[in-house]
């Protein structure tokens, strides 16, 4: 009996938390897909004012405005790529939390793997040369 009461208190505590987190503002979407898209987009886009937060986390005025814009565009049926392009055209690639893997960014994304590959090839070459040398020495 006690454990049941305990359980109900725990459940109550859990649910009351989730209610307060959702209390901010209710946005209506045409479909669940749109809702998911909206939340994905605002967590993917960076707030240009408060540079270490995404649009979802920030309460800066510009972040609120940009969230509204994203919401409007999602509801108008604009595609994700178009929305991201809209933001990049205005705020630069900076607004993307995962920047495109082109140009200078290519080195940032793949540079370590390229260096690792070069190192690995060098390592194999050295090993093989040493093995060859050892063979020659045992022969001679």
């Amino acid at each position: 009996m006690i454990s049941l009461r305990f359980l109900s208190i725990v459940l109550l505590a859990l649910f009351s938390f989730s209610v307060s987190a959702e209390a901010e503002k209710v946005l209506n979407f045409k479909s669940e897909v749109d809702q998911v898209r909206y939340h994905d987009l605002i967590s993917e886009l960076r707030c240009p004012k408060c540079q270490n937060q995404n649009l979802a986390d920030s309460n800066a005025q510009i972040a609120i405005d940009l969230r509204t814009h994203v919401y409007d565009m999602v509801n108008d049926g604009t595609s994700d790529t178009e929305i991201l392009a809209y933001m990049v055209a205005r705020y630069g690639e900076f607004v993307l939390y995962s920047p495109q893997k082109k140009g200078v960014n290519f080195i940032l994304w793949y540079g370590p793997f390229i260096i690792l590959g070069v190192g690995l090839i060098g390592f194999i070459l050295v090993i093989r040369r040493n093995a060859k040398r050892r063979k020659q020495r045992t022969k001679g």
Binding site: P48, K49, Q61, I62, L66, R90, Y91, G92
Partner: peptide
């Protein structure tokens, strides 16, 4: 509404 601001990439 700040729409032109957004077109110009203004943050404040």
């Amino acid at each position: 509404l700040g729409n032109f601001g957004i077109d110009m990439g203004v943050t404040g």
